[in-house]
Write a protein that binds this DNA or RNA. Structure first.
Lengths: 125, 125
DNA sequence: TTTGTCACTTTCAAAATTAAAGTGACTATC
DNA sequence: GATAGTCACTTTAATTTTGAAAGTGACAAA
């Protein structure tokens, strides 16, 4: 079973597309979750939680709900008894890849010591 | 007089360049300030404050300090008695343009009704 | 029966954000 | 020369968000 819930009535603070994008991904965690879903094959709550930067579980839970709500992520049940879920990016979520790549490029070029590799280090799964 | 203060010892939560970039610009306001400096010819505290999304003045003050601290923005005194300042992007700050463009593109394509125009609407100066 | 896993939720203190008012340096006007 | 106005912020206090940690419920395996 696949759930996609998208509520289309969000109200924005301005008509600027950047401001609108930031209302959704303008925080320290959301794009890291997208990164892990897109490149690091982390698709379960557990795997996402064990990611390099150690997102708090309540934050992860809230962000995943928001991403589902906006249609960037869908959750699917991949196993019953016990029920287990996987999170996957939708086309809308995958369309953020150039944003991630540019953020990675900027960080790599202008912040010392950062990696330039979508694969990253993957310290633990 | 031009001030550029850059402290090179920031500690990051991971080696991922995206995570590092987000530690600096991962919030609702910072990239909007960069947008206004880059495209909207807003260079004084007042002009930035009057921008479309109405950033609170203490947040603006704190973000400008952070951007100066990381070397993305420099402040210059353009007038004495009374002393007045202008903020400008450095090369490092300007290098964020592709990030802004991709964020704009994504918002425009996937969030209904957003503008696709670096110039924006500029409702008041 | 006990232990373990997964997918969260709850709790509560600490930190960040917000709106609003205030400050200091000056200039211009009555 | 007293008052009003501008710019560049800072301070204050209430609200919201974050973060670390512990807890919960559904099951499975030993």
């Amino acid at each position: 079973m696949t759930e996609v819930l998208k509520s289309d009535d969000h109200d924005f603070r301005s008509r600027c597309s950047i401001a609108r994008t930031l209302e959704l991904v303008g925080d320290k965690w959301t794009l890291l979750i997208v990164r892990d879903l897109m490149w690091h094959d982390k698709h379960t709550f557990q795997a996402l939680q064990n990611s390099a930067e150690r997102v708090p579980s309540n934050i992860l839970s809230e962000r995943l709900k928001r991403l589902m709500n906006w249609g960037l992520v869908q959750r699917q049940t991949y196993q019953y008894r016990p029920v287990r879920y996987q999170y996957h990016l939708t086309d809308i979520g995958r369309a953020l890849e150039p944003v991630l790549l540019q953020a990675m490029r900027w960080g790599h070029e202008h912040l010392e010591g950062g990696l330039f590799d979508p694969g990253g280090e993957q310290p633990d799964e």
